[in-house]
Amino acid sequence: MGVRGGARLYAAVAVRGFRRYATYRVATLAGVFTNTVFGFVVAYTYTALWSVRPRLGGYDLPQAVTFVWLGQGLLMATALLGGGNESELVERIRSGDVAIDLCRPANLQLWWLATDLGRAAFHLVGRGVLPMAAASLVFRLAWPSGVAAWGCFLVSVALGVVVSFAIRYLVALTSFWLLDGAGVLLMAALLATFFSGMVLPLTVFPGWLGTLARALPWSAQLQVPADVFLGRHRGTGVLWALAFQAGWAVVLLGAGQLVQSVATRKVVVQGG
């Protein structure tokens, strides 16, 4: 299979991932409603905080409020609380069905990455656009200026999704050794929520905690895309931000490949 054939295969897998989530219309609407409710609640608390501490964390009030809504809009796309396809992978590993996946003429990790990208594309549109639109009716938001800025933001989101996937994939692979998938997934969601900027922007975190949080891969899932959206990086700063995400993506995907090869050897030896 040539490179082009491979690309076509993964593209088809991604499209299937998109379509699969697109069928849950009621669930999507229900989710949009929930994102919007949470967005309102958190936006008001940020408003209260920023009205006593203007320019906290380097954001003005509209930027801080926009940060909240970006969090709600990207929550599903970058699967901060889980809800990607990782629990399905865990289930397949536990049931042994993963042996079937290993027989496919595709790399297991890239196969799952493709379905997750399809899923994320759907969630970005289906769960991201409507809450932002609702917010723009009530709050003053800070929008990117120009096509280039929007483009950078989309690239940053895509990289954020890849980093998010790479982490969740590593977590899911632990089920080859651990009996308990759910507990580990919960812990992973926990770290992702706190260290992505979902509960508070990482620039507001105090001292060393803030420095550490901004260097960890989870910041690539919300903090970095949000900063790109809000135009916080000047000139080549944007490229550095994207490079930071890409770097983590490569490192984590590589780690995933490594663990995967150990894990599949285990499957082959034990016969599932």
Partner: peptide
């Protein structure tokens, strides 16, 4: 609406 479980999370 059996897949609207998320509404109650709101």
């Amino acid at each position: 609406a059996n897949d609207a479980a998320e509404v109650q999370n709101s």
